[in-house]
Amino acid sequence: MIRLVAAQRLLVPAAMMCLAAASAVMAQTIDGRRSGFDFMSRDSQQLQRDDTANPGMLAVLDGEGLWNAKAGRANRSCADCHQDASTSMKGVAARYPAFSAALNRPIDLQGRINACRETQQQATPLPWESKELLALSAYVGNQSRGMPIAPPDDARLAPFRQRGEALYTRRVGQLNFSCANCHDDNAGGKLASAVIPQAHPTGYPIYRLEWQGIGSLQRRLRGCFIGVRAEPYAYGAQEYVELELFLMSRAKGMTIETPAVRP
């Protein structure tokens, strides 16, 4: 019930404004693929649509501040190198994870942000799931809102994406589920009170009502592993990047919603 209370509290201004607000994200269905947005209640959908009510926008604002703040021994801000994020970062989230030649493996957007911190700003990497890393990811992700997911056509990614697919279809945990068991075979069904979505990573980082906060795709995936009583991978594990590669290719062409709201 905590969820509903939070939604209602935030919704009062949203309900008044939603008719006027040009909706940033409309229901999206492409060849039977549906965003988690489409599985939500109208209240939660309105919360996501209205930037003045969407709690994820607070992280985007924080991220804008960090984008412009000088950091590290290099005393440089993201903006010092990339200038205006609304042009330089447009479309970036839509094509991540991408192959890092330096590391010789794919990295996700958070990994990319931390790589810039270390090498360009000469600052310590931000901890996974820290407020700062989520804020920067939300700000960069928000620059791609409304754009189609466009995984790069990069042959070096293929074996990693295939491993992601294998992880997606492998049964794990004491309850012995694969991702596909829920998200392909039973999407739209109800697991107790939760409607099972199709697992399209369209809106990360998301503001999740159950968390009462913003969280990354990795946090979401950990929740799914823990739910089936499997040992979750540690934050930053390559397995999450591989799963994300597969999920993003599965969601190709769907629209980025960052920051999405989810139940």
Partner: peptide, 19 residues
């Protein structure tokens, strides 16, 4: 089936430490 096996411990993968 997706129905869990309630009395079985073999043939499972990556079972969480507590389980």
């Amino acid at each position: 089936t997706i129905m869990p096996s309630y009395y079985r411990t073999e043939g499972l993968t990556r079972v969480g430490a507590a389980w």
